[in-house]
């Protein structure tokens, strides 16, 4: 199984290490020619969504990646990645892939002093560590979206079909269960 990791900016290396530890083959997408390689799933890492969104467009990656997502390639976004996947942002005019019908609030917990760590239930997995770094959360979701986790009443993980969006950073916690969940999605389990 081959997973492509968007590597234009952010903590892509942590995702790669996590996926490799689970036996996946991993490569990075930094420019258009990287998309020539076939892949079974795509990861959009944490980082700054404004930077990633801009680089996606200017490096010509945006449309081809959007087409892959729309045609059913499994995709997993964390933090900035969730923002890129959302249909709407409540406090920002940008819209990127519009692949997950949810409304996301950017920097929903405020500045770095608002960053925090929690342990909460993730549907189908159980209690897992969750690290929120200047994180967004999902304010509202369409009816057909599966809510996978909530913290203090706010949605922090959701899935619809091939699209998984999470507002925290499983890639930095040493717990592989969410990545395992995504690889199971890719395998169609």
């Amino acid at each position: 199984m081959t997973i492509a990791v968007l590597a234009v900016q952010g903590d892509f290396a942590e995702h790669e290490a996590m996926l490799e530890s689970l036996g996946a083959e991993v490569f990075e997408i930094r420019e258009l020619s990287d998309l020539d390689r076939p892949f079974d799933g795509l990861v959009l890492p944490g980082g700054e969504s404004t930077v990633q969104g801009k680089l996606l467009r200017e490096l010509g990656l945006f449309e081809p990646i959007r087409e892959r997502i729309m045609s059913g390639t499994p995709v997993f976004g964390t933090c900035a990645g969730l923002i890129l996947l959302a249909k709407r942002l409540s406090n920002d005019d940008n819209v990127y892939f519009d692949a997950l019908p949810v409304t996301v609030r950017r920097n929903a917990y405020g500045r770095q002093l608002g960053s925090f760590y929690a342990e909460e239930e993730f549907k189908g997995i159980g209690k897992i560590p969750m690290t929120f770094i200047r994180a967004p959360y999902i304010e509202s979701a369409a009816e057909d979206v599966d809510i996978l986790a909530q913290v203090d009443g706010n949605i922090v993980a959701a899935r619809r079909g091939n699209v998984l969006g999470i507002s925290f950073h499983p890639e930095v916690d040493g717990d592989t269960s969410v990545h395992r969940y995504f690889l199971d999605m890719v395998e169609g389990k």
Binding site: F12, G47, A80, S115, T131, R134
Partner: peptide, 13 residues
């Protein structure tokens, strides 16, 4: 840890 993590998010930037 949270503070080190914020720096992780800045990488490649």
């Amino acid at each position: 840890e949270l503070n080190k993590n914020l720096a992780q998010m800045l990488k490649g930037g």
